[in-house]
Design a protein around this nucleic acid. Structure first.
Length: 816
RNA sequence: GCCCCCGUAGCCCAACGGCAGAGGCAAGCCCCUUAAAAGGGCUGCGUUGUGGGUUCGAGUCCCACCGGGGGCACCA
């Protein structure tokens, strides 16, 4: 009788004792190493269905490698800094740590019950001073290298969370966390100079090709957004200094008919004619009223205002009017553009709206944009462009850059969409930025030996967001001596973005209590980089981009010898219910704990993996944990009956050959399927083997046949990846000691994989007319002869066939 | 608007360019049983979303469209 609850109660304590999943550091252990990592969880209550899926997937991979004889590092920890803890603390008048660490304990217990093969000795929490000390240490290193700096400017502000956000944390104008509309504020903030690594972040993706999902690579490429073009200098009437614009189409320079400055750029104010000053001010006020969402809408009509001044085209001396508009961004390129309406749709829309001229300079074969309102950005031949006439687009770009360079009015340039990573947050439950502001010495890093700068004790209502960090109110904590001059100074009161914590945690796992640095460099050399990373696609341009950046900086510091942290990455789908994401408002939530109580850990894990390919969503309404439980019971009975009928150590070669062949074919296929992450199909194959074993017991050679034992043992080991409890119990019933997790992956005997005969299909004009049992080694000629000799084929043929296609040994197609 | 992925039986999903169906759910039937449950077994006639094309042969490759999902979308 299969009783999942009893098996859980029996084996969980045994595993805790045996610690079968500890990664081995011993140099004498010569097994090749593998590092399998799941994205670590945020401790927001207990584990949910989504966790159930990801960790089930990661566990199959880790356990498979263990069975295959690798020394596997499969750690777990908690991403335990962050806003929810703070909000909970305000509500309960408590300290964020209380809520956080209580949730961590709950999740840890659930993980253990869920049977995940973690090495628990490597557990870490990012909110431990022991951990965040090294965030501060790393910040100091970044600061020394000029990679951490403070600057003023317009930043994204979330009015609900009362903090600034990085660009990556604003999705379509809304806060990635809470969904509220983000506003722009002028603030001085800390940044990491990720843009300095833009080229490498892009180019190193070549290493990830094939190992990462294509869509994640695409998202990162789009996010980094490298474009090549040219800087071109335009003189502005009434201003000594030239203004530089960036363009990807310098070939269309002769087609520039106006000039646009970002409305919110300082430049607009500097160059506006006195009589247009008022109009600009009015326009800016209007623009400021718009939210980002409205401003970014492509449906929105172009707006702008003439600045009463003119720019001079450097190649032909033409005077073109200067406008201010909000469709030009102040923080990309130089905040100003040359507008070529004939060949750029945005410029054309603007030209049409304000009656500005359209001048075609590339003949593309398309209708005149001035007539159609459709710009022609494609390939073509240059016209009306002086020395460029007759050249192709590509040639013209080259030539014009040479011309501009000769005259000193331009040069080839590269631009990125990526902005620096805004890192400071005006909230409490995070890593304090280890900087002391001294009126005399400026920004002074807290010396390494004084780290960590720990959080002061702030709790309850004192954590309420008020637009400045709650740390600012802790005056005892804030007021310190300057480490340089000893004079009175103040700590920086912002905390770091929690994405800093997760940008390097995978390195800390090799030795989470290491005291001589953020991580043990030698151990990372042995374990890194991560062979397989499993987690959600929502981090495509957040965590995954930041981690890649950190890894490259650490590489430049000589601390890691690789440049990419995650060689392979798998994104699991979501667990949904009745076609929709689970939510309280819809009332369609399914509780992981309740599912486990009802069907057992094994059945829930099996259901997650059998539902479909790992990257597909699982609709819990479409799957059946009850059916999974039924299958496990069936497999369990096979193991029990085989165990009762024969003793361990039997000579399998004496077993029933037919069943042995099924077993070995299954082993062969399941091995390949697991390697390809095709877990649903691997499980289907295991089900087939179970049925074959059942049949052998009931109406074949009987339970005592060694082939039945061989099949049952293979089932136990293969099931151990998915359903560890029933596999363990079955393994014991088969006469083996714990643990099945270390039993070793079975190998398929090639001799048992060959088939004596295969069915060859004979088609006439594509229709099946006969089947022939033939040797798998049959030659094309022999098979052709056999097929043509077939009576069934002959009746469908009159005369000699036109053509005979032979694909030995499986198929013959005769074309009459 | 542009790009990518997916449309196979009532449902979830398999199928190196080669017999459309591996596995599961649901349904129906049979055995076991006094009966039921549990257990064992059997049952698949679908225009592979639609329309073209390539091919001896297309679920699979190409083109267009329809439907679903995702990404990008004033970045000059």
């Amino acid at each position: 009788m299969y009783d999942p609850r009893a098996l859980q109660a029996k084996w969980l304590p045994r595993w805790e004792e045996l610690k079968p999943f500890a990664a081995v550091e011993d140099a004498a252990d010569t097994r090749p190493r593998k590092y399998m990592l799941d994205m670590f969880p945020y401790p927001s209550g207990d584990l949910h269905m989504g966790h159930g899926e990801v960790f089930a997937i990661g566990d199959v991979i880790a356990r498979f490698w263990m069975q295959k004889g690798y020394n596997v590092l499969h750690p777990i920890g908690w991403d335990s800094f962050g806003l929810p803890a703070e909000n909970a603390a305000i509500k309960r008048n408590a300290h964020p740590a209380e809520w956080t660490y209580a949730n961590i304990e709950t999740q840890a217990t659930s993980f253990k019950r869920y049977g995940i093969s973690f090495d628990w000795s490597r557990r870490l929490h990012t909110s431990d001073p022991e951990y965040y000390r090294w965030n501060q240490w790393l910040f100091n290193r970044f600061f020394e290298r000029g990679l951490a700096y403070r600057k003023g400017g317009l930043v994204n502000w979330c009015p609900v969370d009362q903090t600034v956000l990085a660009n990556e944390q604003v999705v379509a104008g809304r806060c990635e966390r809470c969904g509220s509309e983000v506003v722009r504020r002028e603030l001085t903030q800390w940044y990491f100079k990720i843009t300095e690594y833009a080229d490498r972040l892009l180019d190193d993706m070549a290493q990830l090709e094939g190992g990462w999902p294509e869509r994640v690579l695409t998202m990162q490429r789009n996010w980094i957004g490298r474009s090549t073009g040219a800087d071109v200098q335009f003189a502005i009437e009434g201003r000594d200094e030239a203004v530089t614009v960036y363009t990807t189409r310098p070939d269309t320079l002769y087609g520039a008919t106006f000039f646009v400055v970002a409305a919110d750029a300082a430049l607009a104010e500097e160059i506006v004619a006195p009589d247009r000053r008022e109009a600009l001010a009015a326009y800016r006020a209007e623009v400021a009223k718009l939210s980002d969402i409205e401003r970014l809408s492509t449906e929105k009509e172009k707006t702008g205002v003439f600045l009463g001044t003119y720019a001079i085209n450097p190649v032909n001396g033409e005077r073109i009017p200067v406008w201010a508009a909000d469709y030009v961004l102040s923080d990309y390129g130089h905040g100003a553009i040359m507008a070529v309406p004939a060949h750029d749709q945005r410029d054309l829309d603007f030209a049409v709206k304000f009656g500005l001229p359209v001048k075609v300079v590339v003949h593309t074969g398309m209708a005149d944009p001035g007539d159609t309102g459709v710009a022609t950005p494609g390939e073509g031949t240059l016209v009306n462009s002086g020395p460029l006439d007759g050249l192709s687009k590509v040639e013209a770009i080259q030539r014009i850059i040479e011309i501009l360079a000769e005259r000193g009015s331009g040069k080839a340039t590269v631009n990125f969409r990526l902005r620096d990573w805004l890192l400071s947050r005006q909230r409490f439950w995070g890593t304090p930025i280890p900087i002391i502001h001294c009126p005399d010495c400026g920004e002074v890093p807290v010396p390494d030996e004084q780290l960590p700068v720990t959080l002061p004790d702030v709790r309850g209502a004192d954590l309420k967001p008020k637009g400045v960090s709650p740390l600012a109110a802790a005056t005892d904590w804030v007021n310190v001596e300057c480490p340089k001059c000893g004079g009175p100074a103040q700590r920086d009161t912002d905390t770091m973005d929690t994405f800093v914590d997760s940008s390097w945690y995978f390195l800390r796992y090799v030795d989470p209590h290491y005291e001589d640095g953020p991580f043990d460099v030698e151990k990372v050399r042995k374990w890194g980089p991560i062979d397989q990373y499993v987690g959600g696609v929502e981090h495509a341009v957040l965590h995954l981009l930041y981690s890649r950046f950190f890894t490259k900086v650490l590489h430049d510091m000589g601390m890691v010898d690789f440049t990419e942290p995650f060689l392979r990455q798998l994104n699991q789908g979501q667990v949904i219910n009745r076609g929709k994401a689970m939510s309280k408002t819809l009332g369609n939530g399914v509780d992981l704990g309740q599912q486990i109580d009802a069907f057992g850990v094994d059945a829930v894990r099996l259901t997650m993996l059998f539902a479909g390919p790992p990257e597909d969503d699982i609709d819990w309404a479409d799957v059946s944990p009850a059916a999974s439980q039924k299958f496990l019971a069936r497999a369990f009975r096979v193991m029990v009956e085989a165990g009762e009928a024969s003793a361990a150590g039997a000579d399998f070669s004496a077993g029933d050959e037919e069943l042995r062949k099924v077993t070995h074919r299954t082993i062969d296929e399941v091995t390949k399927l697991v390697e390809g992450f095709r877990f649903n199909v691997a499980i289907a194959r295991t089900m087939e083997l179970t049925s074959a074993a059942r049949k052998a017991i009931d109406s074949g050679p009987g339970a005592a046949d060694p082939a039945v034992r061989e099949a049952a043992e293979a089932i136990a080991v293969m099931l151990s990846l998915v359903a560890p409890y029933v596999a363990e119990e079955g393994w014991e019933r088969l006469g083996h000691g714990p643990t099945v997790a270390r039993a070793g992956w079975p190998t398929a005997d090639p001799a048992l994989l060959v088939r004596e005969s295969v069915t060859a299909v004979v088609q006439v004009a594509g229709k099946v007319r006969d089947r022939l049992e033939v040797s798998p080694e049959i030659s094309e000629d022999d098979l052709r002869e056999l097929a043509l000799a077939s009576e069934k084929v002959q009746t469908h043929l009159d005369g000699t066939p036109r053509k005979v296609i032979v694909r030995a040994p499986k198929l013959v197609n005769i074309v009459p």
